[in-house]
Nucleic acid binder design. Structure first.
Lengths: 206, 206
DNA sequence: AGTTTAAGTTACTCATGGGTAACAATATAG
DNA sequence: CTATATTGTTACCCATGAGTAACTTAAACT
């Protein structure tokens, strides 16, 4: 027992510990950004949340904007991962769309993703700006392909997939700004309402 | 003719001229905020656009945040005006909803409204914050009433009007961020696509 | 024409906050 | 148990930009 307390080799190696700390910083930063906004949150605020001093942050991040970029990476991986899963099946386009929506509502609840959605498009660095735009375009393109698939297989009515994809994302991304797990709106209810919109709109069918 | 050049009474009195200049400043500021964002736009930037110096702005506005507040006033008047017109008719709830959507897409294209939508929710002053929230709640409430009317008269299917109103606003407000009059997407097409979503979703009806 | 009020300018103050240099402590490896 | 890389700290620099004081120019009313 005593030997276990004084392990010669630590349970986690340096790289893993570093990664965990970076994650924690990202989470603290994301929470603060969601609360007060990017510009009203100072690096000192974030450092305080993490119980370190500001210069320590620079061991994990390049600069303030780098936090947003790292949040974006996380978002990109999760959203593209979902799209991979959804498009790997041989379901109809409409069913794939439904599955995507269900998964996306889940993803959009995570603090780091929330932060990314709220602050995307305010990149200062031109390269980061371009990367961000490219990721956005690519994801939207993959959703348009799902819509196209549905129109081909007949599960989705003829529509302008460009416009529909944008409207869909705006509605879903908006969820990140207001939905809270502890809030009044129930999670299943939310998904059900969104799915009903895409299946039949709001007009009562005669 | 020469007498006309030297009018003893100007065409516009002081109050009117002042109002026109305030409007112009608001427009310049809104354009700059949409381009670079609120925090990356300095008052010097705005002054330069208006071809005056910074202190002159303080003759028309109280402080930087006051610009956002004045944009909000404009937005409130236009949106509530639209709602007044739409709800004054004795059409069914669904038709009222359609008319509201058509009008809202029009409103959301204006630069000052665009600016308000993008920057609402970052009020610093507690009072302004509360006012902003209240306006937002009130407008959302009026749309929920339209949905309720539709459910009562049978033109709108049974739904959670709270969730639907939020999703609808997020999709419509999103338009302000990407739609451009000179862009690829055609105005009529946009409205048609939105209306088709609310009337029948995207699923092909069997 | 001369007085007053509106409109605008130049030249500052001053808080904030991102970023860094130089130094201190702690943990891992040999 | 010492040498070295890793984390972390204190104390600073400095650009930016909101807001103001004091002064000048232009317009309007009598």
């Amino acid at each position: 027992m005593i030997r276990k307390l004084k392990l010669s080799k630590p349970v986690l190696n340096r790289e893993e510990k570093r990664q965990l700390k970076l994650d924690a910083i990202l989470r603290h930063a994301a929470a603060a950004f969601m609360d007060k906004g990017y510009y009203k949150t100072s690096l000192d605020d974030i450092a305080r949340l993490h119980k370190v001093t500001k210069p320590t942050l620079y061991y994990y991040i390049k600069n303030k904007e780098d936090i947003l970029i790292k949040c974006e990476e996380v978002a990109s991986i999760r959203i593209n991962g979902l799209l991979d899963v959804v498009t790997a099946t041989d379901e109809t386009g409409f069913v794939q769309l439904q599955k995507f929506i269900e998964g996306y509502v889940e993803i959009v609840t995570d603090d780091i993703i929330r932060c990314h959605i709220r602050h995307r498009g305010q990149r200062e660095d031109p390269q980061a700006r371009a990367d961000s735009l490219e990721m956005h375009r690519s994801i939207e393109h993959r959703v348009r392909e799902i819509l196209g698939r549905g129109m081909t297989d007949g599960s989705i009515r003829d529509c302008n997939s460009t416009i529909i994809a944008i409207l869909l994302f705006d509605a879903l991304n908006g969820i990140s700004a207001w939905y809270r797990d502890e809030g009044k709106v129930n999670h299943e209810d939310l998904i059900a309402q969104v799915l009903l919109i895409v299946t039949q709109g709001v007009k009562s069918q005669v």
